[in-house]
């Protein structure tokens, strides 16, 4: 998912908790931070360049979108501002009664329900496997798993489109050679959801594997040794040591994966263009199509704002859940 520009990064990004220190240690590190430069302008100097860029290309566009969502801006309005008029909440009203919008929400929901657990389970399993040894072989294997994450989405669409192809694709050849009947990977509305999700999962696991692996490796060995003395190995040591100590990594991966699925765009955009019959049209893609295929920018902006609010709400809810479980 999300490998266009800044998107890329959102696959693994998270609202922060700085470290997993206990509250006490946070206080000490704060004290350490305080230095002679506290009152000067220096810190602003360090932060300002990045901050200004984020304001200009992160915050400002959504603000503009919010304003535009109250207008009927279309291509005539872009050409000539006289053609723009304020229409209040009309776009939002239409959005609520638009069955295509609800359908795209539903489609996104389906992707989330299957996609988030798949990505977490697959990445965690592979990361646990990779962590059992630090031999050269395992380090090489790790690289293989990361490859999809660093590949350009356009290249991915060509490679997978080619493998999925109905006429000369490799996958159908393999299926028929084991006696199974060929599949319309990207043309059957049910199957297309699966095919698109397979590519998204294939691409998203790499970064998450690295994050889990980093977290697993930072668990002190002696915890396991102590547990082994008490007779806890295998599943028990995973259940009682690894899993609890991975909880922040799990939160991180869950939040970022969920955001990425909520913004799901790239794979259906390049593989199916939302089809067949709208079966793979996610919310982002719906908004994009309203905006660019049909030039209804005011309407699309209303969708943008709604999607943004959904993401903020879902994320806040997750963080709250995390806090009530682990406070």
């Amino acid at each position: 998912m999300g490998v266009l520009g800044r998107q890329e990064v959102t696959t693994a990004a998270v609202p922060a908790r700085p470290t997993h220190h206990e509250p006490g240690s946070t206080n000490t590190s704060r004290k350490q931070r305080i230095s002679a430069a506290t009152k000067s302008l220096t810190p602003y100097g360090f932060v300002a360049p990045s901050f200004l860029f984020l304001l200009a290309f992160g915050i400002l566009p959504i603000v503009v979108a919010a304003v535009v969502s109250f207008t009927d801006l279309d291509i005539t309005g872009l050409a000539n501002p006289d053609n723009i008029s304020y229409i209040g909440l009309e776009n939002y009203r239409r959005l609520i009664s638009d069955s295509d919008f609800w359908r795209s929400l539903q489609t996104t929901g389906i992707f989330i329900v299957f996609g988030v657990p798949s990505i977490i389970v697959i990445s965690l399993t592979i990361a646990l496997g990779l962590s059992v040894s630090s031999s050269r072989l395992f380090r090489v294997l790790r690289m293989f798993y990361f490859l999809p994450a660093i590949t350009a989405i356009v290249a991915i669409s060509l490679i997978w489109g080619f493998m999925y192809n109905t006429q000369f694709g490799l996958l159908n050849y393999l299926l028929t050679s084991i006696g199974s009947s060929p599949i319309n990977w990207l043309s059957d509305p049910q199957m297309a959801k699966v095919s698109v999700a397979i590519v998204a999962i294939w691409r998203a696991t790499g970064l998450n594997i690295i994050i889990f692996l980093a977290a697993i490796q930072s668990i002190p060995r002696d915890y396991y040794e102590a547990a082994a003395i008490d007779g806890a190995t295998g599943w028990a040591s995973f259940r009682w040591i690894t899993f609890p100590l991975l909880r922040f990594a799990l939160l991180f991966v869950t939040v970022t994966t969920l955001i990425a699925w909520l913004q799901f765009f790239d794979e259906p955009f390049v593989l199916t263009d939302g089809g067949p019959v709208g079966a793979t049209t996610s919310i982002s893609l719906f908004i994009y199509q309203e905006g660019f295929s049909f030039n209804r920018f005011g309407y699309a902006s209303a969708g943008t704002v709604v999607l943004f609010l959904i993401i903020v709400t879902v994320t806040a809810f997750q963080l709250r859940l995390y806090r009530s479980n682990h406070a």
Binding site: R17, P18, T26, L251, V312, A316, L319, R320, R323
Partner: peptide, 14 residues
């Protein structure tokens, strides 16, 4: 800043 404190986030957003 702690992640577990979500209130500032939503306030800031609002």
């Amino acid at each position: 800043m702690r992640l577990t404190n979500w209130r500032p986030l939503t306030t800031a957003l609002a």
